[in-house]
Amino acid sequence: MVISDVQTWVSTALTDDDTCMDGFGRARTVVKDLVRQHVVKVARLTSNALALINMYASTHKN
C-alpha cells in the first residue's frame, strides 16, 4: 500500500505542473517563460522518478 501511495503522490505532482502555469493565464511575460522552464525541468525529474518507482513496484509485488 505504501508504494501505491507514493505512485499516487508522484503522479499528482506531475499533473500539477500544468495547473501551476494556469495561474499565468494567456499573458506572455519574461517571468512566465522563466517559470515555465523550471516547471519543465521539474516535470522531467518527476517523470523519471515515477518511472523508477513503477519499476521498483513491478519487481517487488507480493
Rank of each mutant, 00 (worst) to 15 (best):
M1V: 02
I3Y: 08
I3C: 08
S4W: 04
S4R: 12
S4F: 07
D5F: 04
D5E: 07
V6F: 11
Q7N: 12
Q7L: 14
Q7D: 11
T8W: 06
T8D: 08
T8K: 13
T8Q: 10
W9N: 04
W9Y: 05
W9M: 05
V10A: 14
V10Y: 13
S11P: 01
S11M: 09
T12H: 12
A13P: 01
L14S: 14
L14K: 15
T15L: 15
T15W: 15
D16K: 15
D16L: 15
D17E: 14
D17M: 15
D17I: 14
D18M: 10
T19P: 00
T19D: 12
T19Q: 10
C20Q: 12
C20G: 05
M21A: 05
M21W: 08
M21T: 10
M21L: 15
D22I: 13
D22E: 14
D22F: 11
G23K: 14
G23R: 12
G23A: 14
G23Q: 14
F24T: 06
F24M: 10
F24R: 08
G25Q: 06
G25T: 03
G25E: 10
G25H: 09
R26G: 11
R26Q: 13
R26P: 04
R28E: 03
T29A: 05
V30C: 02
V30H: 03
V31A: 06
V31S: 04
K32W: 02
K32G: 11
D33R: 12
D33N: 13
D33Q: 14
D33E: 14
L34I: 02
L34N: 05
V35Q: 01
V35F: 13
V35S: 02
R36S: 11
R36E: 11
H38M: 09
H38K: 11
H38Y: 11
H38N: 07
V39G: 00
V39P: 00
V39F: 00
V39Q: 02
V40K: 12
V40I: 15
K41G: 00
K41H: 02
K41S: 03
K41F: 02
K41L: 06
V42C: 03
V42T: 08
V42W: 03
V42G: 01
A43F: 02
A43L: 03
R44I: 10
R44S: 11
R44G: 06
L45F: 03
L45S: 10
L45I: 07
L45G: 08
T46D: 10
S47V: 00
A49Q: 01
A49W: 00
A49N: 02
A49T: 11
A49F: 03
L50E: 06
A51Q: 09
A51V: 08
L52M: 08
L52C: 05
L52K: 11
L52D: 09
I53V: 13
I53C: 04
N54R: 15
N54S: 13
N54V: 09
M55R: 07
M55Q: 07
M55P: 01
M55K: 03
M55E: 09
Y56N: 01
Y56S: 03
Y56E: 02
A57M: 00
A57R: 01
A57C: 00
A57E: 04
A57V: 01
S58N: 05
S58E: 04
T59G: 01
H60K: 03
H60D: 00
K61F: 07
K61Y: 08
N62R: 07
